Amino acid sequence: MTESDGQQDSEEEADRKWTEMLQEVRVAQTGAQILFGFLISVVFTPRFTQISPGERALYDVTVVLGAIATGTLIAPVAFHRFLAGHGMMPELVRAGAKMIILGLVLLGLTVGAALVLLLHVATGSSVAWLVAGAVMLWFVVCWLVLPLLALRRGRRASGSPAR
């Protein structure tokens, strides 16, 4: 195998990984866009004028987080437009994966902040923070802990070294 064959293999592997990443991120992109759309519409409801200054500040933070999450989850598409056709697919996959991870973290924070806001406005209780904290903990378990445990088990079963 020549060096160019190895490069072609890595480009093909990167193309495959890129396709998989796009399939995975579509769900998060859609969720972020829908959540952001609902957050934007809240300001146009009659009840919005009745929220407290603290709730208004939380709303502002939630909307900004939603905007950043949405932009971050869409960013790999723009990144692809700039790098496609330049023989940089492995770099694109690495950068795209980082953007998707960051976007998921931001989306999780947006959901948590929106949950606090919703529960606080609906109940007037600071229990909203406790409930939202429990939900965020559940996200950490589902999105981080369980995949890491599965990875560790898979590496032990295959005899691969842990990273």
Rank of each mutant, 00 (worst) to 15 (best):
H86I: 10
V64Q: 06
M88H: 07
L104Y: 11
R94W: 00
Q50L: 12
A84K: 13
A97G: 14
A67Q: 10
L73G: 02
V77M: 05
I74T: 04
L92A: 14
L65I: 00
V64K: 10
V63F: 04
L83A: 14
F79L: 15
H80Q: 09
E91D: 14
A97I: 05
H80M: 05
V105W: 11
I100E: 09
H86W: 03
P90G: 08
V77K: 08
L92H: 03
A69S: 04
V61P: 00
S52K: 06
A69V: 01
A95L: 06
G87H: 10
G66V: 05
M89I: 05
V93N: 08
V61K: 12
A75L: 11
H86T: 14
A84E: 07
A75T: 04
L58W: 07
I101K: 15
M88E: 12
L65S: 05
I101H: 13
A69D: 00
G85P: 01
A67W: 12
M99L: 14
F79I: 07
A75S: 12
L104P: 00
I51H: 03
S52L: 10
H86S: 15
G103W: 08
G85V: 06
A84G: 01
Y59Q: 04
V63R: 03
L83W: 11
G85C: 03
K98C: 02
Q50S: 13
V93R: 07
V63A: 02
P53K: 02
T70F: 03
D60A: 15
M88S: 11
G87T: 09
G54Y: 08
V61T: 11
L58E: 11
R81F: 07
L102H: 02
G85D: 01
G96V: 07
D60C: 10
H86A: 15
E55F: 00
